[in-house]
Design a protein around this nucleic acid. Structure first.
Lengths: 198, 198
DNA sequence: GATTAAGTCAACCCGTTGGATGAAAACCGT
DNA sequence: ACGGTTTTCATCCAACGGGTTGACTTAATC
């Protein structure tokens, strides 16, 4: 019964990989919900269902855990790029990430200004796409592509960054898939109007 | 020399009003910079140049001070409304508030979800204005006025809520008057395109 | 000027938080 | 089986942060 190569045997009493993953997941949720400063390491450990000392063991403390998250999501952001999709699709997927723990974390770190929250290459690529769309006439050419991207990203992130205001305006909970879908549809309409086609 | 009615004599050794004001100002700056949880009462007192105990004396503690700020800015927000200005002017002034301590505080509380950050009446008024603009043909009529307002507010708040990303995209510091002006101009162009007129 | 109240401050208190210590438990190769 | 290593845990500790206490100072009132 040599099962030394049983990959991540689901019922192991000891599993460093699983523990690390549990902690990262729990940390993303906690940090995303309350922000770095308000998050207690005890809560992270409790959510992960492991001893809190393991945070120090695996990540060298609270800050190390946070930084690990900050870098880890950069890779995932690159996936989101999905090359050159239509603008409304990009916006829609961006609205979707708004609901994730990583999205909330991104918003916090953006405000706090601790770690560069977005992959530089990703942003550059998106700006280029904007330029292309302007060249194709899909978007007004007299706008600065960077600032246009910024405005659209900010608008797409509204359910997250302006969570409370969104709730006050609409009376609904912006943190639901239904809201995200509805909102993304509105944004799609909006950019359509930008292109000149009504 | 009866000067008991000397109003807020500027050179008094003791002046409750001034002290309260100093604390409120310092608190807005500190809370705005780091958020509630990361802010230390010691720092607030130091910035105000007074003893930290006075926070308890005048506001009943850190939380009381925070709440005082939260309610105080509601009144100032109402002023910003300025009745029915053109949309680009409204957006521009909104971008401007982005640079203030109160603006930063507003962003934090929006993320944290602690206190309703915006005056309900103000929002209602703005939504109504949106509806009017749609009726006048200044804005597309097939968009939900509330969600449109939300998107525009979020876009206007980008230099604040997406401070880091904005910096990454443009290479400039979004927290400057110059940037705000430039960005507001772009937003004005953008909404002009929305109205159909290029 | 004496008495009283309001404002300010330095020092201490105590719960909380993140991290450290050392031991126990599970895994590994032999 | 068994010794060594890695992973996990219960307990403890020092630093920090917000709040309180009580004394001192200034201003108002008599």
């Amino acid at each position: 019964m040599d099962q030394r190569r049983s990959p991540t045997a689901s019922e192991r009493k000891r599993d460093p990989e699983r523990t690390r993953a549990l902690l990262l997941e729990a940390a993303a949720a906690e940090f995303g919900a309350k922000g770095y400063a308000a998050t207690r390491t005890t809560d992270i450990a409790a959510r992960a269902g492991v001893n809190k000392q393991l945070i120090s063991y695996y990540f060298g403390g609270k800050e190390g855990l946070y930084k690990e998250l900050a870098t880890s999501w950069h890779s995932s952001a690159a996936e989101m790029a999905h090359e050159d999709q239509p603008l409304d699709v990009v916006l829609s997927s961006f609205v979707a990430t708004t609901l994730t723990d990583h999205g909330r974390l991104w918003a916090w770190s953006n405000l706090a200004g601790d770690s560069p929250p977005t992959d530089e290459a990703f942003l550059r690529g998106q700006v280029d796409q904007m330029r292309e769309r302007q060249a194709k006439g899909e978007l007004p050419a007299d706008l600065d592509p960077g600032l246009l991207l910024l405005a659209l990203m900010a608008a797409a992130a509204a359910p997250l960054t302006l969570r409370q205001t969104a709730s006050q305006i609409t009376g609904e909970d912006p943190a639901t898939p239904e809201f995200a879908e509805k909102y993304a549809a509105q944004l799609a309409l909006l950019v359509r109007h930008l292109s000149g086609r009504s």
